[in-house]
Write a protein that binds this DNA or RNA. Structure first.
Lengths: 194, 194
DNA sequence: CGCGGGTTTGATGATGCTCAAGCCCGGTGG
DNA sequence: CCACCGGGCTTGAGCATCATCAAACCCGCG
């Protein structure tokens, strides 16, 4: 169970985890299950947990006054799920995170993070790389939203994250792209006629 | 000239700059001027420079096949201008950065950064906070694009960065919001009738 | 005075949304 | 085994939002 996490950290870091580091990780991350439709985080709460996904799928989204959902993040195996802003600034989150499939995770609390995990060198390196990668991908997604039509954004998503299409239904993908499910359906029809 | 930068770094860090740090900074950042319409970075180039704006205004944008510009970033006094992805990954940039006003900057090259600046503790702290803040604000902008109509995005911008409205013409602001100048003009008329 | 850059306005059209209906398919229970 | 149900996907008609194109206006500046 912890292997996936340990391998993940090592793969993102030049300095590998020491034995004591590994012990600290096994001691600090708690295995957990989130059933389909259960929440890891609800809008308005402060995000006190970060989850590393062992297997399953989560989504992060807001709900507007009309009740429609706007997907800002999708997480599957070997991804981290949390609301970073709420986590670091202790402010109430604007987002919900819930399970789309029954999901196994390793859970880290903020306190445990600061006490045990934050100082681990391999973790520091991984963390800074992840933050960087995340910043780049959010930046790209933003640029796509202001500069590309729906069809192109969909094609880009297929290329960047083909796994998502297997794991999430089209209305989720549509929302992630900033369009409705009907528009996505029509976009796909257009594309298949080529 | 260097005061602004030094104060800026200290204001973002708990550990203050030492005398040798300050000497290194003065020695490493080179004063520069970018005249209106001159480029700090052109699409296709690797971003080898980071600029700290002493005064003036820069914009970062892409140009699509139809020739229209899409503004992804605006930078004024006490902001850092560069394409972080290109800077860190050494890949050609998708963006242009040019001066909207005649601008005074302090320039840092990548080599000088790694050799002299990166290890400075106050700089490390500042840098990680900035990256964090930037990630949060890009995330918010992304969320606004998929969930809010043009009018609401404009209102949010007024509240978040009122300075921008003073410094940049409306067609730039419109592009930053992901709409055309005509739409922005009409949105503003709507708002003034309330 | 004329020019250039910025803004506004109007007419028209594309893109994507809303609402409503129907279809497909896998799962559940009679 | 079949009927039904729910979730997801598709399709269509009408509509809202925003883009495009073109023209006019405004104003500071050489």
């Amino acid at each position: 169970m912890y292997e996936a996490l340990i391998n993940y950290i090592n793969s993102y870091s030049t300095t590998q985890l020491s034995e004591p580091d590994i012990a600290a990780i096994k001691d600090t991350f708690k295995p957990g299950k989130i059933k389909k439709k259960e929440f890891l985080l609800k809008e308005g709460q402060v995000c006190n947990l970060t989850a590393f996904v062992i297997n399953g799928a989560l989504r992060q989204y807001s709900v507007d006054e009309k009740g429609s959902e706007h997907i800002v993040g999708l997480y599957i195996e070997n991804w981290w799920a949390s609301d970073r802003e709420s986590w670091t600034t202790l402010t109430p989150s604007l987002y919900n995170i819930d399970a789309w499939e029954n999901t196994d995770v390793l859970l880290l609390t903020r306190d445990a993070y600061y006490e045990r995990i934050k100082p681990i060198p391999a973790f520091i390196e991984m963390n800074s790389k992840l933050q960087e990668n995340n910043a780049f991908s959010v930046q790209k997604r933003l640029h796509a939203l202001i500069s590309l039509p729906a069809e192109k954004r969909y094609i880009d998503l297929i290329n960047a994250y083909p796994q998502f299409l297997q794991r999430f239904p089209q209305h989720i993908i549509a929302s992630y792209l900033g369009i409705t499910k009907e528009t996505l359906s029509r976009v796909r029809r257009q594309l298949s006629n080529k």
